[in-house]
Design a protein around this nucleic acid. Structure first.
Lengths: 237, 237
DNA sequence: GTATAAAGGATTGCATGCAATTTCGCCACA
DNA sequence: TGTGGCGAAATTGCATGCAATCCTTTATAC
């Protein structure tokens, strides 16, 4: 047994790398993802790429059309609305569970995350987007249900993808402010306030995003993937 | 382009066959699912079996331990409780969406399904279990959200699997009765009643199931799979 | 000049082969 | 009888090859 017996395997690393690349808008919706090119970049055979793509397809980040290959998913406005609506309802469940579990440690975790968000406020946009998504995922983890966590992750990722299609570059500070208010309500144990704030937060995000119809031509090349692939090739998780 | 250009492909057929076999208790929790035995039975190579198993693993019906192969998932009591609790909350969302969409056609579909359940009341147990699950899935479809539908399907299947672990042979009539009451409340447009009935229905199912600790030795053989495999080999969907 | 058709190249679908890992049976030994 | 370890068989992890499908480009007819 090797030191630290690496828990994840190559398929996981590749899926994660691709997921990050999608969420950080390096791979834009509609881009084709040919197995060969990806395999070459990641230094593995098509087999593993295929597995990864199928996994991402199951999460809704990639579309897999038969005999026609994979492409970054390009959700329609209708799908996007469905997604955001469901998101508000699901995260409503998260809030009411988290509030039942509140404890000093949990509060600490939430505040630590908020601090990271504040710190990165002026960092690059992809990073602040990622941190904003991870705030919701952290909440879901604290809700204590593995299945619920998976759903929140999936919906969160897909919403992130959607935003890269429809949203204009977003200003993060309002988001951070809203996160802070939610944490405060949770700390006070005020469930109604927390739920209302979360609903408001999410509909705000959706509204900011979903009413700009931004049509984008389908970009095509993968060179920007290089840094993500390198990490996987080198095992530098 | 062939006549009727079959919409599903072999991987889908195999996953469906395995899923049915699991839900109909032909493959019991804990049973090993070796790739080449399955491949032989279904008349395909390990590649497709692998894909199918991974898909089922993503749904939580199969556990996939590294270098150790696949087995029908065997949820712990704790996971089971989590699942059932989430189920009641998610299906609560379903009800409030369906009631907003109610129309004569929808009512018709629900009643048609109920009729099927009544008709099969004395049929074999696997069939009545399947129909009971499909009632919930039908409701989810009528809710109009593809993502929500997927989640209800997944949770429903996993609950079905759980029941085959922990529940004693169940009497179906009470379930049918409860389904009927839910439909009536929906027909009347009484959202509160419908939600309350659904919550009651689901907690009843969970309670009937989750407090008998039935330990089962891990059964091992796949011969009972034969009819499912034959359908796939023959293309008889 | 447009439209249709055919050929060639690119890409996926699936099976198979080989190496690595695990599992199981067997035997030695306490 | 029970336990530890060793080797063979079974099983998975991954790469590669071939056939089938799709896409593009070129050529030909109208």
């Amino acid at each position: 047994m090797k030191a630290a017996d690496k828990a994840k395997h190559r398929t996981d690393m590749i899926s994660s790398a691709l997921r990050s690349a999608i969420l950080e808008r390096v791979l834009m919706p509609g881009m084709k993802l040919p197995e060969d090119s990806l395999g070459e970049r990641f230094g593995v055979s098509r087999t593993l790429i295929r597995q990864s793509l199928e996994r991402l397809a199951a999460e809704g980040l990639v579309e897999l059309r038969r005999n026609k290959g994979a492409a970054v998913a390009k959700p329609s406005l209708e799908e996007a609305r469905d997604l955001f609506e469901l998101r508000t309802q699901i995260e409503d469940l998260v809030i009411s569970r988290v509030i039942k579990n509140m404890s000093p440690e949990i509060l600490g975790e939430l505040e630590a995350h908020l601090a990271k968000e504040v710190e990165a406020e002026n960092a690059s946009e992809p990073i602040s987007i990622r941190l904003a998504t991870e705030f919701h995922i952290l909440l879901a983890r604290l809700a204590g249900s593995p299945v619920l966590l998976r759903y929140v992750e999936e919906i969160g990722y897909r919403c992130g993808l959607t935003l890269s299609l429809y949203a204009r570059p977003h200003s993060t500070d309002c988001g951070i402010q809203e996160h802070r208010q939610i944490i405060e309500a949770l700390a006070k144990g005020d469930e109604d306030a927390a739920r209302k704030l979360m609903r408001h937060h999410l509909t705000a995000v959706a509204d900011r995003a979903l009413f700009t119809t931004k049509e984008s031509g389908p970009l095509l090349y993968l060179d920007a993937l290089e840094p993500y692939a390198k990490k996987v090739r080198d095992g530098t998780s």
